[in-house]
Design a protein around this nucleic acid. Structure first.
Lengths: 341, 341
DNA sequence: CTGTTAGCGCCTTCAA
DNA sequence: TTGAAGGCGCTAACAG
């Protein structure tokens, strides 16, 4: 019962067969008689040998059954974001059916090279915060699927953020409104602050860029002028960062009456601060969010938002990953009309 | 600029040096002159060779820099649980400082053998749902740290669940109370239901077992009789499963006036249903939770609960993983007195 | 159906 | 400081 580590070779020796036979017993049932196979498997079980070493197998075969999920940001942040969590759910659900495993990889890591040889490819959820990764992912030999942004020659899945943002803003805005925008990563800053002259993120396929364009379009459509001093950037979709923007909005000499928030977490945080300050929503200020997370329904007034099915997005991305010739897709979204506008 | 995949050997050839020299340039700076090293590194950069293949390296060296986090349950479920998410945060934070990567592994997988050769070890967060994994983890040659349960010969970190449950229950219960328990995985059932004669989970180091014992102790102490028909089991700490128990409680001919919930998510769900039914909390019914998640503070009345620092638990578990001679630890908890009892 | 063999890409003595 | 050689454990092609 000594748990000395066995190898294919050592097992072959003690069972007096060739290594190929052992290998076949585990990997290609059709290459040997059922009887022999079962005999071998039983003997291995007995000896405490649980199959070929995976590391060696992966070196030899060139695939490991591990796929990396490259998150936009650090793992610690992403894992507590409900939208990202839903996405991960979808991914892991499909991975399971392909007997593959999930390696979580941070979007602000130095380089994908530290894991590239371990994985069969990458699913990139959102544009990685470290731009160096973009190049690496573009030239990388392995399969890459992108989500919510695009890379040349790579299949991607995304919702039409611009159109969705346009529609939700259109619903919120009326002529004569004073509008504020609380943007998510629309600049490269990593603190909450007014945008003013800070250059905006330029990547056209980025979520931030597209939603922003959608908002502007709706504003133009309604003939509403946007006061440039009423645009904030929030670096992370979290209560803490959004709260700062909310408090600054409350300090404005002239309170806006419509606030376009680029995520629900931001929207909820703004909502909470306004309510605490005694502001009536939507009577005095209308608020809209983006994403459609569960928690919005547990608050009053219920946030009006764009619903996107993140879990399904995860499933689709993963299926694309496993399809031989993946094609980019656009995912549907829905307006979710709550009570906040 | 062709991106043909290079190897250590091919690079050595084109640079007219030996493979060892290239290897040393990347792995052991002290084994060759600084000048030569930089020259080589630059040339590699130029050629598009980013260092030794990690899969081969891992086969040769026997370590990969990947550690597996074995979750109690499926990844899709765990990732949306706020307590687990906090834990993962802590883990990934420390992993980063060790330049290691995180593989998420489901606790109801068949066997850890599918990844064992890829990883340097395991951190097990909660008792895996598939009991077969327990044996595997016990005999496994690699490093294993357990969290919230124990395995022979393995270091673990946990809070004293029994004592904490005792204290929170003690706070809630008064003589003459009619008490209900909504337990989390106290039986092996996978639907929400009354426990009645279903055998309880027997593993003494399990969270469920310990919290349950803590409750019973407090009941005895207060001289309160527990009506066996007022014990429910919930298979997952989620709103959906807990709601069922809450609705059944509301159907009881005689409503309990104290409900001990084994997690905050359960507690909040029960709270919500009681409030919807017009029950006053804590005047008519007292409720306590367990865990101390953020969301409890965003509801009224605020849930009284046990706070445990899950992020710190994750950090400690990971530091233990990297320590040469890890020793089991017990983590502190705090009573968080809200408004629900 | 079974056995032999040549690598997958690398690291690490060992000798020069 | 560098080069040569022997595996790490396995699989796929081929021969029998």
């Amino acid at each position: 019962m000594k748990n000395k580590s066995h190898t294919l070779r050592s097992i072959a020796d003690t069972l007096h067969v060739s290594t190929a036979t052992i290998s076949n017993a585990f990997n290609r049932p059709d290459q040997l008689s059922k009887a022999k196979r079962e005999e071998i498997l039983a003997a291995c079980q007995q000896l405490g040998y649980f199959g070929p070493n995976k590391a060696a197998q992966s070196l030899r075969r060139g695939r490991s059954g591990i796929i990396a999920l490259v998150l936009a940001d650090s793992i610690d942040y992403m894992v507590s974001d409900p939208v990202a969590s839903s996405f991960i759910r979808g991914v892991s659900e499909i991975l399971k059916t392909h007997k593959s495993h999930l390696l979580l990889f941070s979007g602000n890591s130095q380089s994908i090279n530290s894991v590239i040889d371990f994985v069969d490819g990458f699913i990139c959820y959102g544009m990685p915060r470290n731009p160096a990764l973009l190049n690496e992912l573009t030239v990388c030999q392995k399969k890459v699927i992108t989500v919510d942004f695009a890379l040349p020659e790579r299949a991607s899945i995304a919702v039409d953020n611009q159109q969705a943002a346009f529609e939700i803003a259109q619903r919120a805005i009326a002529p004569g409104d004073r509008v504020a925008i609380v943007g998510l990563r629309i600049t490269h800053g990593d603190i909450t602050s007014k945008v003013m002259d800070t250059p905006l993120v330029e990547v056209e396929t980025s979520v931030a860029h597209q939603r922003y364009q959608g908002y502007l379009h709706a504003l133009r459509n309604a003939g509403v002028e946007l006061d440039e001093s009423l645009i904030w950037n929030v670096p992370e979709s979290s209560q803490a960062f959004a709260k700062i923007a909310a408090l600054e909005i409350l300090q404005e000499p002239q309170l806006p009456n419509t606030i376009l928030c680029m995520s629900d977490l931001i929207g909820l945080s703004v909502l909470r601060e306004l309510l605490s300050a005694g502001i009536k929503v939507p009577e005095q200020v209308k608020i809209v969010g983006f994403d459609g997370i569960e928690e919005t329904k547990r608050h009053h007034p219920i946030l009006t938002t764009v619903y996107q099915n993140s879990t399904e997005k995860g499933r689709i991305a993963t299926r694309m990953f496993f399809s031989k010739k993946p094609e980019s897709q656009v995912l549907d979204y829905e307006m979710f009309v709550g009570e906040s506008c």
